[in-house]
Nucleic acid binder design. Sequence first.
DNA 1: TCATATGCATAAGGTCTCCTTATGCAGGAT
DNA 2: ATCCTGCATAAGGAGACCTTATGCATATGA
Lengths: 305, 305
Amino acid sequence: MHMIQPLPPLAAIRAFDAASRHLSFTRAADELGMTQAAVSYQIKLLEEKLGFALFVRKPRQIELTEKGKRLADRVTWAFEEIRQSFDDIREETANTLIVSSNTTFAVNWLAHRIHAFEVQHPNLNVRIIPYGPAASPEFDTADVVVSACYPPPADWTSHAIVRAQFTPMLSPALADTIGGVKEPADILKLPIVDARDPWWAIWFKAAGMPEVNLDHLPFSRMGSQALEANRAIAGQGVAILTPYFCREALAQGLLIQPFGILAEVPDEKWSLCYAPTVRNTRKVRLFRDWVLAELEKDKAAEQAA
Amino acid sequence: MHMIQPLPPLAAIRAFDAASRHLSFTRAADELGMTQAAVSYQIKLLEEKLGFALFVRKPRQIELTEKGKRLADRVTWAFEEIRQSFDDIREETANTLIVSSNTTFAVNWLAHRIHAFEVQHPNLNVRIIPYGPAASPEFDTADVVVSACYPPPADWTSHAIVRAQFTPMLSPALADTIGGVKEPADILKLPIVDARDPWWAIWFKAAGMPEVNLDHLPFSRMGSQALEANRAIAGQGVAILTPYFCREALAQGLLIQPFGILAEVPDEKWSLCYAPTVRNTRKVRLFRDWVLAELEKDKAAEQAA
DNA sequence: TCATATGCATAAGGTCTCCTTATGCAGGAT
DNA sequence: ATCCTGCATAAGGAGACCTTATGCATATGA
């Protein structure tokens, strides 16, 4: 008995909604960006589908019928809800910046700088989502991704921000235990933090010792320079780290960098990237410009030193 | 700063609503009576307009994104509200019968019979709206109109139900005051209820007295036979009434009809009419059939007598 | 492990809805 | 009495929207 009635055409319902609020086809058409004739057409269509009149046409105005009135109340409310839903989401989207960053960059770079950005743009809401070595960046949900290994989708914009350069680091105390680290081979006398890190082989090769193989050593795969740096600072071993991310520790004497030799692979670098769909949004522009400016400041400081 | 954003295309929103409920484009398409490709197309469209993803595509299923989820909750609710609104109106419309009837027919015919109809169809809700001599039938809002003078819109269906026949009626007591009403001229000896009723002239002409003119007499325009009949029964004067509507009063001896002569104009009659849009609705069919059946019963009874 | 089935994405193409333009008409406004 | 406003209607066209056909990835089943 109760057949599910399909909804009347939505375009007609929308026209009805507008007309019922304005009590004028002309003004409704104006709101909807179409002509009076179109509204008239849609309303008539709807009335025919329903089988009863929604408006009483009077000389220079229209009135809602009894049924029209009751329908209009609820329909208008529903449309308002839909409109609000999209507005809310839009606003939230515009003001919330989600950054998916690998842990290294998040901890060693973003963490202590982002506050300045937030102060500068108080209406922006920044959420940083670090991803560990096992996980991959949230290309689906993040506005901006900072990634080293995972290439973004082809059409994304990408900015190289930090070159992937690695060199051994250790605590001064640990170096002293063997009377200082003077040549690359000295490293082999000390414990290694994360011996399986592929950068070791690259570095030893760059240091003229292509035959070194650390695979037999005990290792713990940390995957994040933040943790490895901490272990190195604690004197637990030699870590292979990116100097740029250790500036603080080096300056404070917590770590020393025994050699100028840097392991580097041409195409490896950290990059900041984002989808074309968000390229021109305010929040992404602000963040990108801020990151690049920060990097410039660092580079200038480095050259001054 | 706050530009009013136009809503995304409604078709896309509807597709999103269905897809979010089913968590499947295929099933959503099924519900909407279209193809999977169409839903996929609409969702993609919507996502592009919004600038962010609503679904995460996984191998054999889809998932709502965070934002998608929040949108879906509200949008689904709004659509449900719209659907319900129309359903409610439809159901109410199907079960409510509005009869706009002139007062004469409403009081003398419908009033005491309608109850049987209501008992017979308990789910129908009948509202009778009588209109007086000054007003016109509610062609706009009523499902069915009973009218004598006002012609319905051209495309309406119309059933002749009662011929407009008039003849003088009075109370036996009033007749006795002049020793009985034996010939038309006797009427002139008595007070007349509503002397300006045009039917008097027509009747006197039919009675062979074309020269009679009652315009000089005092009158009160009642406009409804129900009231005129009551005054006649109360002995206040002679009224010109339709015998069919006085059957009860005549049978009970409250009124007498002194002459068989009937005033009649070929095209004048009461008719029951309704718009083509409601012609095939259950409620109108039931009511029309019931009225016609009642009339048949009366006709049969009359012929038996 | 391979073959099959399922579900979404995409491209090309057609259709039919929906809108516009143009005009008529009725009744207030001046 | 004339103009003007606002809705109705007809004819015609454009483009949104849907369909068909196909590809692809992955879960499923033998």
